[in-house]
Design a protein around this nucleic acid. Structure first.
Lengths: 334, 334
DNA sequence: TTGTATGCGTTATCAT
DNA sequence: ATGATAACGCATACAA
């Protein structure tokens, strides 16, 4: 690999000048500039980014921590981030946190040790305090899907409450009045918020919420099945079900089918997230779109703007979910 | 951030000694070692990996190029790679190639400019020649799901032919004799190989292949639907369908349902890949498992063994797919 | 076993 | 506008 020194030699200038034309941050005469450019081309020169990083104290890389690499959700998020970062010439280093505190912390330290210029985190297990302390350190962080008031400017969130509201409202508008709800793990704020939205819609339509028609799952499809079993076992009538995410909805639909329940004719179901699988299950799932790809992209923009001085980038901190109507929910036939 | 120099000062030793205890690659007396360790702890010292890289000419990072970040397939692959690499303290830098030659090359150069110690590539558009030249360069590569004879030792592949054979054999064993086939884009070697396996099974059972029952898709679900439409339009009888991947199978099932065809009672369908969605579509898809996560893990091991001298790692270059029986294929009722 | 000195390929601060 | 030269934080060959 050719170094900057060899280029300078071939071009007959000092290496400082070569550096200048590379970064064109100082005036260089057209003549020498073209000489240098020619020398670079001739040698096939590529700057050593490691040396650049050491000298400039900038690694030009941003670290990403997601809960899981597999699954459709984080893939979309990564795609959004990578796309934006690469266009800006920034490297993307990834690590998985597996929703466990120790593992998340470990992943973050791993990323820090690589001198990332910034961190984009999708963490669940780590405490608010830890994140606040982390943010107070040298390396800026941005949080996806986690709202901490003290770090408000660093958060990119979905309005989960609104999503829960929209899902429920759709069913209410379709005439349903006996609604069941399968929630996510209530210690997670998004699960809690979605549920709050559900309650708001119910109240708005003057429908009293029946605690017997509530079940708490863990966002996995198996828990959707289990919760559905519980609900059916109570022999209480309900014509609609809102699930706090698509995977649980898929599990619930399967159980419904096993019980001979026609979806949506006998039971309307709405999910949340709009994962790819929502299009594949039968009937196609009516759900709430979670623009996670866009949010990843926005997190990347946050970094570009704050760390790499890309001005003129518009930032958005709160995303609004929208309803996606497919086939799993229909008007109540009376 | 504390530097190695400050540690050496506090410990009252030279910075070379500090370096030695960090890498414990040279004999250091227990006494000084503990002095140094104490100093490191006291200062909260973390080595600057950028400086390490520059001095040692090793970046301790491996670059990954996948076609797409979203979707279930590459997520599993990344998960396998990340897992293995992180355990070994290696950083994972990702880029997406989008199955386009220019973009793939761009991604590779992007990774190279970051001085990755090795590259793990899942590329489709780039030519064999390009890869052979690339492999001849300074930076080692390993290829996933791409076999190039000259680079045999660098390839981690699935026996696609065997997979195609197993899928078809299953249907033949279940008594089917009128089989249709929806292929992937035949310029891709995996599509070709899967099809070859299909033909081998057919021949083995003495069933003559009917070209009219063949359709070529592009691995997307929409093409599965389109191909299924074509096949049905011919009004030729067939009781089973093998699809070269799960997504096309999902598309085909949907069309079958629209035409009032019961799956599997009237039409058995087998897919390929065993994506997560295979468990969600109805009926649950019988398919061929593609252990992409394991293959990613193996690619990472290849790198650890060849580049980072982790001896004693067993390598495997060819993976055998297995049949996963679910509900979309059943015995032919006569 | 430990210390000294040099180099890795840049950026950046001085001069000129 | 251009050229010396000192960092940047560490690894390592060589000395002691």
């Amino acid at each position: 690999m050719a170094t900057i020194y060899q280029v300078s030699e071939l071009a007959g200038v000092s290496l400082a000048t070569v550096s200048r034309v590379m970064n064109n941050n100082a005036r260089v005469s057209e003549k020498t500039r073209s000489k240098v450019l020619a020398a670079m081309a001739q040698l096939g020169y590529r700057p050593n980014s490691i040396a650049q990083s050491l000298a400039s104290n900038r690694s030009n890389s941003v670290g990403i921590l997601v809960s899981e690499l597999h699954g459709p959700f984080y893939g979309d998020m990564l795609a959004g981030i990578e796309n934006e970062c690469r266009a800006a010439g920034k490297h993307v280093i990834i690590a998985a946190g597996h929703s466990e505190e120790a593992s998340e912390i470990d992943g973050i330290e791993f990323l820090i040790s690589r001198s990332c210029d910034a961190l984009i985190l999708h963490v669940e297990a780590v405490s608010d305090d830890y994140l606040i302390k982390l943010a107070a350190g040298n390396i800026p962080i941005v949080l996806i899907n986690r709202y901490i008031p003290q770090l408000a400017d660093n958060c990119i969130c979905l309005n989960n409450e609104l999503g829960g509201y929209l899902a429920t409202k759709q069913l209410l508008q379709q005439g349903h009045r006996q609604l069941a709800y399968i929630a996510g793990p209530m210690w997670k704020s998004d699960a809690k918020d979605r549920y709050a939205g559900h309650l708001r819609a119910m109240a708005e339509y003057g429908v009293t919420f029946n605690p017997a028609l509530f079940a708490e799952g863990d966002f996995q499809d198996s828990s959707g099945s289990a919760c559905m079993q519980q609900l059916l076992a109570k022999k209480l009538p309900f014509t609609a079900l809102v699930c706090a995410n698509d995977e649980m909805a898929a599990g619930a639909i399967e159980v419904a089918r096993e019980h001979g329940l026609q979806v949506p004719e006998q039971l309307s179901i709405v999910g949340f997230d709009n994962l790819i699988l929502a299009r594949y299950i039968h009937p196609k799932l009516t759900t709430i779109d979670y623009p996670i790809g866009e949010m990843g992209r926005m997190a990347a923009r946050w970094v570009l703007k704050h760390i790499y001085q890309h001005q003129a980038l518009a930032l958005k901190h709160l995303f609004e979910p929208v309803l996606v109507c497919r086939e799993s929910a229909c008007a109540l036939n009376v």
